[in-house]
Every structure is written in structure tokens, then in C-alpha cells.
Design a binder for these strands. Sequence first.
DNA 1: TCTGGGGTCCTAGGACCC
DNA 2: TCTGGGGTCCTAGGACCC
Length: 422
Amino acid sequence: MIVHIDCNSFFVSCERAFRPDLRHKPVVVLSNNDGCVCSMSTEAKLLGIKRGDPYFKFKELARTQNITCFSGNHKLYNDMSSRVMDTLRSIATNVEVYSVDDAFIKADTSMPLVEYGNFIKKKIWQDTCIPVSVGIAETKTLSKIASHFAKRYKAYNGVAVIDTTEKAKKAMSLLPIENIWGIGSKLTIRLRQLGIKTALQFAEMPQTMIHQILNITGERTWRELNGERCIPYEREATGKQSITASRSFAKDIYDIEYLSEAISVFAAIVSRRLRRQHGKCTELYVFLETNRFHNDTPYMCKTERTSFEEATSDTLEITSAANNALKRIYKNGIGFKRAGIVVTNIVTGNTWQMGLFTDELKRKRSICLMETIDKINAMNHATELIHVAAVTNRGVDRYVRNENKSRLYTTDINDIITVKAT
DNA sequence: TCTGGGGTCCTAGGACCC
DNA sequence: TCTGGGGTCCTAGGACCC
């Protein structure tokens, strides 16, 4: 059996772990730039707040209803996530970390399944103060459905097990298709046009029909609902195949100097992440985007691709290539709301294709320089001590709104929590 | 005034080859 | 006069996820 563990309102729960006074109160965590809702507590949901709602539209409601709003503090959430995953690893040997707030494990236990689920839930709460929902079923897709029910219906007390065909059918008959893992907005529209409304109706569609209207991914979902395991179980997280760094700005940016500085910060971020996974890239995309929500100006997204002759993770090389790409797509007089960098074609390990004219000495020096910079920067969590000259150490944050950020309770010694005796 | 960021996988269609 | 067909590889973009 496969166990799906899903943290409840994860970002909100991370904030609450250090602010127990906020339990049972409406809380939301906003996206970068205090843009829209990323995570909300049930109490906030009951007040009508939905995931993705823009902050400016409910700011007044937040004030009158005493909704606590946090800016995203992703360093904290990532650290809390790794604590949750560590607890899971102490329980099972085959943890698949699926995202920051959910994971799969294979049930390897003699315990009754509901008891096992409760044990996991309790242990994570003990270790991290993060509430989770646990779903157990034959396939990943069904275990996702189980955890969905565990989260939404109080009677389950956070643990739901689907271990018979009858239970699977019952659960699926109550689940709208758009809540199936793998069925997004486009497929929902198409399926609804065919009169398919519930997961059970979808699962009972004839295979010939599935072939006609779905691609291989959709078919896999259909098989999984019918109890056939076909989404592979990936225990070891492999390195990323692409790494992105991007931000929306608080206002439209017209100045190429500003953009260049942001792009240089992104270059440093992706280079560092590349080196952290012992990877090098050969391809780089730089993109600039105008505001999608302005009706008076046309939406525009310009992307420029660059490739490196030899795979690299050198900040200087990536920064310079990214800035050259920026110059090629920048247009004077256009205000850009978002910019970013993506590196792909990542090779990992010590073997990679060398360039024809590689300067061996230069390459060795570059590796040595990057190692040294990483070591020095690792000594200070708050700001980077060493960065490319064009970049201020305020990073991209100077263009980004971040008004209600909580402290780095778990990763910065200066932010560690103080306990008062009463 | 104000609407996120970081990923994966799949596929249609173009480029290219013989 | 008459102008192929089949295969592979690559890539941009779509769809989906959290």
C-alpha cells in the first residue's frame, strides 16, 4: 500500500508553529511581492478567502476580520519541510519527497493501516508541530484521494484508508473530476462537456474513449484510479532538470540598469543552486514579461536562449551570458513587471563534454573561485558577503514588496525564539 | 496603486537527412 | 509534362502540479 502524507495549510502551519496564539484564527500567507494568497487556514477559508486571491482585493476584509497576513518566508518553510521529511525517514526507508509539503512512503508495517496512519500523524506533530493528513491506498492517485478526504472530513480524524474496491468507488463517486491529481482545468472542461462529473464516472469510462481524448498522462491517471500502479515510485530525489529564478517587481521597470541588476542576482541564484546539486548547465533562458493584468497595454513575454559550448556553473560566466541575452531582448520604453532566468540541459557529476578550445587552467581557476565564494557565503545566512560587482547585497528584494515577513526562527541565530517565564 | 514562483512531462510540428 | 517519402531529432509551448 502507498501512504500519502500531506501537510495541512503548510505555510500557515509553519508560521503557527512559532505563533501558537494564531491557532484557530484566520491566517494567510501571501506569495512573493505580497501578491496573492498562497496558503490559508480553514478559518480564513470560511471567511471566503481562496487560494490565488490578490491581496489588494481583500485587504479591507483582512483588517475588519482580524486575518493575520504573512509575507512568504520560504527559507523557514523549506527548513520546516526538511524537518518533516526527516521524521518520515525515521519511520520509513522509502520516502519519496514529492513537494515541499507532501510525500509518499510505502507502507512497510504489521500495524493496522489506520493505526499506522495515526502513528505517522502523531510523530510529525510531536517533532515539528505541523499537522498532516494521511491517505493510504493501492496507488498514488488513490492515496491522494484518501488524504484529500482525510483532510476535509472531520470524522476521519486526519487518516483515511481506501483498501477495498467498494471504498474506492464510494470515495470516487463523491469526488469532482477537477480534484483528481492529474486532471487540470483544460481536461475538466473537456470531460464535463462529455457529461463526466465525478472521479467514478471518469474511472468507468471505456478504455477506447480514454485513448481518443487523453494523452498518455491522462491514461495513467485513469489506470491508477482503477487500482493499477503506473506512476513510478521515485525514492531518491535526483537533481533538478531545470532551475529557475524569477520575480515580479512591485512596479513596472523601464530601466535596463535595474533589470540588469535583477538578472545578475538571478544568475547568482541559479549558479549557486547548480553547484549545490553538483550540476552544470549548457542552456540558459532569460525572459522579460509585461503585466498580464493590464488591459490597456498588450501583454508581452520575450525569451532569449543562449547555449554554452561547455557546461558551466560559474556565476561570472552565467551572469555575463545572461546580461548579453538581456541586452538583446530589452526594449526601451516598455515597462517590465517580471523577469527571470532558467538554466536547463543540466549535467551532474564529474564528467561532461569539454569545449574544443577549453582553457584548462582557466577552468580549474573558475572551479576553485566558485568553491571559495560558496564557502565564504555559507558563513553568513542573512546576506551574501561576496557577489558580482554590479549587484548590491540587497538583492532583488529592493524591487519586491515584503511587508509582513516573519522571522527566520530555525535558520538564523539572531531570529531564534525567546521564551519568557511567566 | 495592487494579481507568485518553481518545477515536470508530453507532443506537434519544424528541421534535417537520405 | 512530371518535383517523394519516411525517419529521427529538437524545441517551443501546453498542461499539469504544489
